[in-house]
């Protein structure tokens, strides 16, 4: 319930308390309803803007090729066809790419969290010398375009034997994700009150225990947000993955580069197919992100 509504109610209450008069009471109620309706309309408008493009990709992915050449284009799935999608799915390496991509995405999550969460905690809790320089260092690594980094990185990987493995892509993606993970988690830890942690320590928790039992649950929404970014970034990253692998590619590296030369229908099929796993991941993580919504822990 918004605070605005509560204020409307509270201000209306004194008039209503002495003698219940329904006829007088309807005005604030109507205002409330109107506000609710407006809120819903605003939400619908935003939803339309966000969802219609995704609908259009889906529509195009399941339209016949000739339907995409018509003008004006149709907005309803009147010429449903799975032809392009099935051709796309049966092309060499899509399944293997899917496996590699999921593997790389999850491993990137693990690596970047193991390394990033402690660092984020350090930034939030400790005022150490080099605090700002450290953050700049992180951003510095992210500010250089990947294309410039990937060739020397490929040489490095070739000479150490990790080239053309999911590990190579994982390492690159972890490096790309770390700045995001660290800065985001630090913002979250900043919001978790120090008192909660200290209380846990008073009641006999070890530092690690206090961290995992008290701080981590409170920081879960932020960590969930960071995990979404990390996974999605890894899932969609194509420039680096293309250079670092040859026969064990991730899905975007396998299909996106070839898709740009394919007929439009295939580009939509591929584009839509790539969205699905990321949408599923966001759906899972959303629970944790909205974990504390409305709860009154403090």
């Amino acid at each position: 319930m918004t605070s605005a509504e509560t204020s409307a109610e509270t201000s209306a209450r004194p008039a209503a308390v002495p003698r219940p008069q329904p006829a007088v009471d309807t005005a604030p109620l109507r205002a409330l309803r109107r506000r609710r309706a407006l809120l819903q309309v605003a939400c619908w408008v935003v939803t339309a803007f966000m969802v219609v493009p995704v609908y259009l990709i889906a529509l195009a992915a399941f339209s016949s090729r000739s339907a995409l050449n018509e003008f004006p284009l149709r907005f309803l799935p009147t010429s449903f066809s799975t032809e392009t999608m099935s051709t796309f799915l049966s092309s060499t390496g899509v399944l293997a790419g899917l496996i590699n991509s999921i593997m790389v995405g999850l491993l990137t999550l693990v690596v970047s969290f193991l390394i990033g969460v402690p660092a984020g905690y350090a930034i939030a809790r400790f005022a150490f010398r080099g605090h700002d320089q450290y953050q700049l260092f992180l951003l510095f690594t992210r500010a250089l375009p990947i294309v410039v980094l990937s060739v020397p990185l490929a040489q490095l990987f070739l000479s150490t034997g990790v080239y053309d493995t999911p590990l190579a892509v994982t390492l690159l993606h972890s490096a790309l994700a770390l700045p995001t993970t660290i800065l985001l988690t630090s913002a979250v830890f900043l919001a978790v009150p120090v008192d909660a942690e200290e209380a846990a320590r008073i009641f006999g928790c070890t530092p690690v225990g206090a961290f995992t039992r008290v701080v981590l649950p409170l920081a879960l929404p932020g960590i969930a947000a960071a995990s979404i970014f990390t996974f999605v970034m890894s899932w969609n990253e194509v420039l680096g993955a293309t250079i670092l692998t040859l026969n064990q590619r991730t899905l975007p590296a396998q299909v996106l580069s070839s898709l740009s030369d394919s007929p439009l229908a295939f580009r939509f099929a591929g584009g839509f197919f790539l969205i699905i796993p990321a949408i599923v991941f966001i759906a899972v993580m959303r629970r944790y992100l909205l974990n504390m919504w409305g709860t009154t822990i403090r």
Binding site: G93, G97, N100, L107, V111, P166, T170, Q248
Partner: peptide, 19 residues
């Protein structure tokens, strides 16, 4: 240890995308 374990997991497999 955790950081070391992850890459070991990764390096043992990777699916071939070129047939």
């Amino acid at each position: 240890l955790g950081a070391a374990a992850a890459p070991i997991l990764a390096s043992c497999s990777g699916a071939s995308t070129s047939g």
